[in-house]
Amino acid sequence: MQLMDNLIMKRDEIIKPVGNPFLNEERVKISCRNVNVYYEENHAIKNVSVDIAEKEVTAFIGPSGCGKSTFLRCINRMNDTIRTCRIEGEIRLDGENIYDKNVDPVLLRARIGMVFQKPNPFPKSIYQNVAYGPRIHGLARNKAELDEIVITSLEKAGLFKEVKDNLDHPGTSLSGGQQQRLCIARAISVQPELILMDEPCSALDPIATAKIEELMDELRQNYTIIIVTHSMQQAARVSQRTAFFHLGNLIEVGDTNEIFVNPEHKLTQDYITGRYG
């Protein structure tokens, strides 16, 4: 019985993270303060406070079910579409609280691109897939401008060369890796400031993964990127900062180099060295 109580205590415990979650004000793109997320009774994110740096890749790592995706979806308010989900706390994008009553989540999501775990192109042509966002936001005044946007987005996503003769082919006919790059092109077509990626490579083979990682390295010149990954190597390769989550808690956060070379928290050490679970 005592043991049970201990375990339950542990699950509900709110842990203060080691490392430094906060950054110099000039570098901050997003600042999260005391964020709590509940799915009905399930306390999925426990009082997380962390800053995300501008024009850097930040990786969220942690065992599955620890709340990485949940936290990621708080940042573009995708959790609003889940009925059972309740969010407390403050998330500021460029100083503006995105959970403020005046903020329209639809407009917010136009500023924040999202790439999902499974490639999810629309069952439309490659062109239409990329043109979708600019169209609904009225970014192009005419066909020529739209073409321009589609082509530059595909180029930035490193896909244009492969598909330039087949823009009218269905997006779903591409290979998995190409589909995921198409989804990235779709995400950047509306010129977001921020790109959220939820395990973007988990359904891809190593070669396609390498291409996406390369792409992320280029994109970080212009975009702030947050990537959720379960691959330690990937986090080490692509990110500049890493945050480690466990059971809804932010356990440790810091420069990627330091976390991987010198993890401070016992849980982080175990996870990174593969001793976890």
Binding site: M78, T81, A110, F116, N120, P121, G133, I136, R186, V190
Partner: peptide, 9 residues
């Protein structure tokens, strides 16, 4: 649906 909502539709 997520893809579409995700780019702000």
């Amino acid at each position: 649906r997520d893809a579409s909502l995700g780019i702000g539709a």
